[in-house]
Simulated assay, not measured.
Amino acid sequence: MTQIHMDPEVLMGLQEVMEGEYPHLLDTFLDDSQKRVEALRQARDDAKALGQIAHSFKGSSGNLGAVRLARLCQRLEAESAKAQVADLGKLVDQIDHEFALVKPMYESERQRF
């Protein structure tokens, strides 16, 4: 099964609803996501903090159609809640890598406006 990085249907729906505010929404998502990735890196050894950051990042990613990023955040949130925390750093790295993949896609979408 192909992994969806950015769902264009979600973006089209947002563009219709947000109209002139759509570019601002993309800017906010990009800025906020960068900050969350940095916060995940800094919280690598704090399962509770990772879970909280992952929870909010999951929501914003899902709302903006960053499907795989949202799934990875969901996994990190779930794993951080377990009593025995394995290596959450691997999931943080995967989220970091996925954001690095989708960031130029969203920047390209932003450049259309």
Rank of each mutant, 00 (worst) to 15 (best):
M1T: 05
D96N: 07
L91H: 11
E79H: 01
H24K: 13
E21W: 09
H24L: 06
G51E: 10
F99G: 04
Q74D: 10
D45I: 05
D46T: 07
C73Y: 01
A54V: 01
Q42D: 09
M105N: 10
Y22V: 08
R71G: 15
G51L: 04
L25P: 07
F113P: 12
Q34M: 02
E16F: 07
R75H: 12
N63W: 01
F57K: 09
R44G: 12
F29C: 08
D45W: 02
E38V: 09
P23Q: 09
P8N: 04
G65C: 14
M6A: 08
A54K: 01
G20T: 10
K58P: 11
K35I: 00
R68N: 09
K90C: 12
A70Q: 11
M1H: 07
G62F: 09
A54C: 14
A49D: 15
P104L: 02
Y106E: 12
P8L: 05
Q111V: 01
V67P: 04
L40D: 13
A43K: 00
Q15C: 11
K90Q: 05
D93G: 05
A86M: 03
A43P: 04
K48F: 00
L50T: 08
Q52C: 11
L64N: 07
L25K: 09
E16L: 06
I95G: 12
V102P: 00
M105L: 15
Q74K: 04
R68D: 10
E16W: 06
A83M: 08
Q52E: 15
K58T: 08
R75N: 06
Q52P: 15
Q74N: 06
A49G: 07
V37G: 03
L88M: 11
F57I: 12
D27G: 10
E9M: 10
Q3R: 07
G62L: 11
D46K: 09
P23G: 05
K82Y: 05
M105R: 06
K48I: 02
Q74R: 06
S33K: 01
L64W: 14
Y22Q: 15
F29G: 11
S80L: 09
S108Y: 08
L88R: 00
D93F: 05
A70V: 11
E77K: 06
G62Q: 15
F99Y: 15
R112E: 01
E9F: 03
Q42M: 11
D32N: 13
R71E: 12
V67S: 08
A54G: 13
H5T: 03
L11N: 01
C73N: 02
P104I: 08
E21A: 14
R110M: 01
A83D: 10
I53S: 02
P23C: 05
Q15T: 01
E79P: 05
G62R: 06
L14R: 08
V37L: 03
I95H: 11
I95R: 06
E38F: 08
E107F: 00
A78T: 13
A100C: 14
S56C: 02
H5P: 02
A78D: 15
M18P: 13
L72M: 12
S33N: 10
Q3F: 01
F57C: 04
A49E: 15
K35F: 02
M12Q: 03
L30K: 11
L14P: 15
G59Y: 03
M1E: 04
E77G: 10
R41T: 02
S61I: 02
E109D: 09
Q94I: 02
L72R: 00
H24A: 14
M105G: 03
V85F: 07
K90I: 00
D27A: 12
A54W: 03
